[in-house]
Simulated scan of single mutants.
Amino acid sequence: MNYLDCAQYDCCHNKAGCCCLNSIQVRHTGPGDAVCGSYRNSEGCGNVATDNPPASPETDIHCDDKGCRYLEGRCCCADHVSIDECSCGPECATRAPKENNG
């Protein structure tokens, strides 16, 4: 499990910076971008966080960003992951490029 700190407060799964989902999906969207694919805007659907299990700072993170050093298989191995508001969407601020060893 990863410790998740989410600043995407307009997401219907966000409750006080924690996520109500047991796991989230992070998608690679560009050369240096990865966004939370589990994000759902609360506008128009209300805050469904009240219908979900209690929010927790711990969640599993599944990812497809092969350019990130924290990717192991299809899971994120970073201890602490931050999701921040960005013009590209709910950006994974923890994303770090793989180091070249060659």
Results as ranks from 00 to 15, higher is better:
Gln25Asp: 15
Cys19Arg: 09
Ser38Glu: 08
Val48Gly: 01
Cys63Gly: 02
Ile61Gly: 04
Pro57Lys: 05
Gly46Trp: 12
His62Phe: 12
Ala55Met: 02
Asp33His: 09
Ser42Glu: 14
Asp64Asn: 14
Ala49Gln: 03
Gly30Lys: 08
Pro53Trp: 02
Val26Leu: 15
Ile61Val: 15
Val35Leu: 04
Thr29Gly: 05
Ala55Asn: 02
Asp33Gln: 09
Ile61Arg: 05
Thr29Ala: 07
His28Gln: 11
Thr50Met: 05
Asp33Ile: 03
Arg40Phe: 11
Gly30Ala: 12
Gln25Trp: 13
Arg27Leu: 14
Tyr39Lys: 02
Ala34Val: 10
His28Arg: 10
Asp65Phe: 00
Leu21Cys: 13
Asn47Gln: 09
Ser38Trp: 08
Gly17Lys: 09
Thr50Pro: 00
Val35Ala: 01
Ile24Trp: 09
Asn47Ala: 04
Thr59Ile: 14
Val35Thr: 11
Ser56Glu: 06
Gly44Met: 06
Ser42Ala: 15
Pro57Ala: 00
Cys18Thr: 10
Asn22Leu: 14
Ala49Trp: 02
Leu21Trp: 04
Ala34Asp: 04
Asp60Gln: 13
Arg27Thr: 07
Pro31Ala: 09
Cys45Met: 14
Asp64Met: 00
Cys36Glu: 01
Asp33Glu: 12
Ser23Val: 07
Pro54Ser: 07
Cys63Met: 10
Cys36Asn: 07
Glu58Ile: 10
Gly17His: 05
Thr29Lys: 10
Pro54Met: 08
Ile24Ser: 05
Glu43Arg: 10
Cys18Leu: 11
Ile61Ser: 02
Leu21Gly: 07
Cys63Tyr: 01
Gln25Ser: 08
Ile61Thr: 05
Cys36Ser: 03
Asp51Asn: 05
